[in-house]
């Protein structure tokens, strides 16, 4: 049950996939709860204040950070603004159409927004220029470049990696005037131990798998996302289908372990910026 229903899989193929999964196997020789190969390159876009390209199997997502001058929200005068946006441009899949973000894109962006906000990964308090008056607005723009399943987890990986790579342009205060000096930047002081990641489970018959290919995703009956910093749960989102309380419990516990391991890998991969865009 995909959000983009016009992806068609022959029923013979579906039967084969179902049988494989019931035997604990997958077409690409993975286990039910294992991810595809992951590579992350940071610093791939020179015009961005931070960027990352994530390859998760054949799914490719790029994220770029931009800082702008902004006004704080009334209820958070001492915090910078965080805005997460996700686009699914038509170059990324035959089923994507041009236009503003649809409900699928909005949903993913909002899950990532909640996970980032509650994990305390981004030091939003450091993004204040003049309390109550002037703050940084931090834009996290996520672009899907090739959709082969699991956009939620790959977009989350792209977001946290681009943020890890972010450099904040210096603010120059001149009386009431504030300007950003794009030529002088300081690294954003993230809290790496709080990095949130998502693990999205898809249900096929009664089996739960993670990191589906597009084919597996389209034929799945249910979707459930758990976001965690490895310690706490910082967001949940149930998509299609149904889940029992027992399944939810096991997904939460599984996620804590997956996130702990995955975080170590991600932190290693975001260490060295590559400086150019390469697939």
């Amino acid at each position: 049950m995909s959000s983009y229903p016009f992806e068609i899989i022959p029923s013979l193929r579906r039967d084969t996939l179902r049988r494989l999964i019931s035997e604990g196997k997958r077409p690409d020789d993975r286990q039910l709860i294992s991810m595809r190969d992951l590579t992350i390159r940071v610093g791939v876009v020179k015009t961005a204040d931070g960027s990352a390209l994530v390859n998760l199997g054949n799914t490719k997502v790029i994220a770029g950070i931009k800082f702008e001058l902004g006004k704080p929200f009334e209820d958070t005068p001492n915090e910078g603004n965080l805005i997460v946006n996700l686009e699914t441009p038509p170059l990324a899949a035959p089923t994507f159409e041009p236009g503003p973000p649809d409900e699928n894109a909005i949903e993913i962006a909002r899950i990532i927004d909640r996970a980032l906000r509650h994990s305390n990964y981004i030091p939003l308090k450091d993004l204040v220029i003049i309390p109550g008056k002037s703050v940084y607005s931090m834009w996290v723009d996520i672009y899907v470049l090739n959709h082969d399943g699991n956009l939620i987890d790959s977009s989350m990986l792209a977001a946290v990696s681009a943020i890890a790579n972010a450099q904040v342009p210096r603010a120059i205060i001149d009386g009431d005037n504030v300007k950003l000096d794009k030529t002088s930047k300081i690294p954003l002081n993230i809290n790496p131990q709080n990095m949130p990641l998502t693990v999205t489970y898809y249900k096929i018959d009664k089996y739960l798998i993670v990191d589906p290919t597009l084919e597996e995703e389209v034929m799945s009956d249910g979707r459930f996302t758990v976001a965690s910093d490895g310690e706490n749960i910082v967001a949940l989102q149930k998509g299609e289908g149904y889940f029992t309380p027992e399944e939810i419990d096991s997904m939460m516990n599984n996620t804590l372990n997956i996130v702990k391991d995955l975080k170590v890998k991600v932190l290693e991969m975001v260490k060295t910026p590559v400086g150019s865009l390469m697939f």
């Binding site: 706490n232 749960i233 989102q237 149904y242 029992t244 419990d249």
Partner: peptide, 14 residues
């Protein structure tokens, strides 16, 4: 005994 909608906001222990 099905959960059909579940979202979470904030920081929660499992």
């Amino acid at each position: 005994n099905w959960v059909l909608l579940m979202q979470l906001d904030g920081v929660w222990k499992p």
